[in-house]
Design a protein around this nucleic acid. Structure first.
Lengths: 226, 226
DNA sequence: GTCGTCAGAATTGTCGACAGCATAGAAGAC
DNA sequence: GTCTTCTATGCTGTCGACAATTCTGACGAC
């Protein structure tokens, strides 16, 4: 999905990330390096390196002398992440409208209008991807690398919940249709309106994710593994 | 400053961080693992681990197969960081005023009023510390862990410039006095005013830091090492 | 003079091993 | 029966070595 380089560390990174993201490890549980190394048939070194990088993504935590732990997830953390995300995205919108010329905004609006049309009726994953890409694309208009990096990081930590398809058919990606209104507000340089729409949109998304977290946690603790 | 555990990795982490933060390595230059290992008289493993953690702090970058590199610094990066910081801090203020009761705000105001009074006439480092601590304390009122984490990260990436005392006596920490007005606005729950003051304050700070970056870069490239 | 090619050197990527610490479980005191 | 102490096990922290890759500089073709 990201970079599919051939190196062993990357393999470890991707495998671990996917497993962490879908809570293949129990929240808060300790990750046994040797065990993981054996499972992925590689040495402990690349595992350790991958785990260190996953700290940055907020997917694992680390305690000196004790090792790495699968991150815990709670609805309050989801709240925090969405609140932070709103701060950054609304800032990005304000900055973008202040900095971009009309042609850029118009081109942005056209591009994403088309992409939304093309994705109509796609799978869940495709819609989630589209949603993420749209918000990142919007934020990228402001041309601020550090803000974008933090937003990507936040996405990573929320994403997994959106991907778990607990009961196929039950779920939908809410609010994709709301993007159209947001795009309009942007094109008309209506900052206040755009930010208001963003707030609504993110609130809805947050509600959805919160609900899923609860369901997911119940699920995880139901089929006790070890 | 952070955690001063006895482990080797921590030693490596701190040493490297300090060196990176003061640009003991040349911006953009490749970091030779073996060389560093020899200098710090330890093996490459802990060095590598420390470097991986420093990626998260934005102090080094990494390219597969090529190694670790000292981050580059530019005035545009400073702009980005300050803009992002404004997004987060203004969000924190809005959230804090919405969530906190009067007693909490009052206690916050008193505490920081006193601390500012106590720090009057302190050294440069002390003032920088005070400034950072105040802004973090303010943001902490909102009680959002993820936002606070990102703010701390941003501080880290800006801090070094503020610490380099190129020509003793020339510099001052601007705008500490402006905190008083900000505290007042907070106590009176005047969100708009508080955010306006914050914007001014950060703009001033950013100007100061930008200037220093240029001076620092000139300095670094002046005494060419290798 | 410039570009492409090709060894040689240097550096990163990965491994297995051992030392030291943390944890868990058994044995004993009260 | 509960708490403490001690021991044994398992795990992390660190190391040195080798394999694989990238970089450097020289040589030769055009």
């Amino acid at each position: 999905m990201t970079r599919t380089s051939g190196t062993t560390v990357d393999k470890a990174y991707e495998q671990l990330r996917d497993q962490l993201v879908t809570f293949g490890f129990k929240p808060g549980s300790r990750l046994n390096e040797s065990e993981i190394a054996q499972t992925l048939s590689m040495s402990r070194a690349p595992i350790r390196e991958a785990l260190n990088r996953l700290i940055a993504d907020g997917l694992v935590s680390f305690e000196p002398g004790r090792g790495f732990f699968c991150r815990r997830l709670s609805t309050s953390e989801v709240n925090d992440l969405y609140e932070t995300r709103f701060d950054l995205e609304s800032g990005a919108i304000a900055a973008a409208l202040a900095a971009c010329d009309d042609a850029t905004l118009e081109s942005f609006a056209m591009t994403w209008h088309d992409r939304h049309a093309a994705a109509d009726g796609g799978t869940l994953d495709q819609l989630v991807d589209l949603d993420e890409a749209f918000h990142l694309g919007l934020s990228a208009l402001a041309g601020n690398a550090s803000r974008l990096k933090y937003l990507e990081n936040i996405n990573y930590r929320i994403r997994f919940v959106r991907r778990i398809n607990l009961e196929p058919g039950t779920r939908r990606v809410g609010g994709i249709s709301e993007h159209a209104k947001l795009i309009d507000a942007i094109r008309h340089r209506d900052t206040a309106q755009a930010i208001a729409l963003l707030r609504q949109h993110l609130q809805k998304s947050a509600d959805e994710v919160r609900l899923q977290v609860q369901t997911a946690l119940a699920h995880i603790y139901a089929d006790d593994v070890a």
